[in-house]
């Protein structure tokens, strides 16, 4: 039986991070979940809107929430951490302030009940796996040491998100264990990658990404696992902007968590979009002890 789930892909998943979309859809398909896009969705406004105009930064996510409600969605899977943050923060701010909610509903000229709940990619995978065991679906255990990198917006601000521990989150680590990987203990799980400065201040992105990559490699990781298009593109696409890296630091791949799970579920590399990365995903096949 197919289960339907509301889905807000966001702009990155339709463009520069399309492999996140491809791998999410492939994994969800394998788990028997049909993702149903919010009809005629718009951009959430990302960093740009809240940097320049408060009302706009609430109105753009509000339109998305209203459209999802209109389509009868109770939950919306939002894989991009930045979109997830904008949707959750907007919903929270409007729930706390009736007058502001009325003002924003007036700006977007739509009814706004705020009863559609945005969930992140981990929560969406958990929903899809309800009643099933991920371990039993694994056909090719991901026998690598991985550094799970959560970045900022999946765990902060904890007061609003209420998802995992903000300083040492473990949800991704546990999910990686279930597909056979060995998550390492490391120091840069929740440090910022430079996010929206990829184009305007590439120098700062390189500066912030360098210690993330260095620490992961130093502690033995063979791949970085992420759940955010900004984290992925800064660590992957902007790797060449980081100066003075060792061979290992230059070559450690950055996989979306959906790509890592997809590999373990035996989904074809191409269907997971692994060929789209700038840092080649050259994980050697490895026999698993006891498998």
């Amino acid at each position: 039986m197919t289960m339907k789930m509301g889905f807000y892909p966001g702009c990155s998943l339709k463009g520069s991070s399309r492999e996140f979309n491809e791998s999410l859809c492939a994994v969800m398909d394998k788990l028997g979940v049909e993702l149903e896009e919010v009809p005629d969705w718009n951009c959430c406004g990302a960093t740009a809107a809240h940097n320049l105009n408060h009302a706009l930064s609430l109105s753009l996510p509000a339109r998305i929430l209203a459209l999802a409600e209109g389509a009868g969605m109770q939950e919306i899977a939002v894989p991009c951490s930045a979109c997830y943050s904008r949707l959750v923060m907007t919903r929270h701010e409007l729930q706390e302030n009736e007058a502001l909610k009325a003002e924003i509903a007036d700006i977007i000229e739509m009814d706004l009940a705020l009863n559609a709940v945005p969930i992140n990619v981990i929560q969406a995978l958990d929903r899809a796996l309800e009643g099933a065991s991920l371990e039993s679906l694994v056909v090719a255990p991901l026998a690598y040491k991985v550094a799970c990198y959560y970045g900022c917006l999946m765990v902060r601000p904890p007061k609003v998100l209420r998802f995992d521990q903000p300083e040492d989150p473990m949800t991704m680590d546990r999910m990686m264990e279930r597909v056979g990987a060995e998550p390492i203990d490391w120091a840069f799980k929740v440090e910022c990658c430079g996010a929206g400065f990829s184009v305007s201040r590439t120098d700062l992105v390189a500066k912030l990404c360098k210690p993330i990559v260095t620490d992961a490699v130093k502690r033995g990781a063979e791949a970085l696992i992420v759940a955010c298009p900004m984290c992925q593109s800064n660590l992957d696409m902007r790797r060449c902007a980081i100066k003075g890296m060792s061979e290992a630091e230059a070559h450690i791949p950055v996989l979306y968590i959906t790509q890592a799970i997809g590999l373990a579920l035996g989904i074809d590399r191409k269907d997971l979009g692994l060929q789209r990365h700038l840092v080649k995903v050259a994980l050697p096949r490895r026999a698993v002890v006891g498998a």
Binding site: C11, C43, A46, T47, N51, L56, V199
Partner: peptide
């Protein structure tokens, strides 16, 4: 440059609805 990036980003959303 940072402000120029944000403004250019919003231009695209205003015109297309998406980035």
């Amino acid at each position: 440059d940072i402000i120029a990036f944000h403004k250019s980003f919003l231009d695209s959303i205003r015109t297309c609805g998406r980035l």
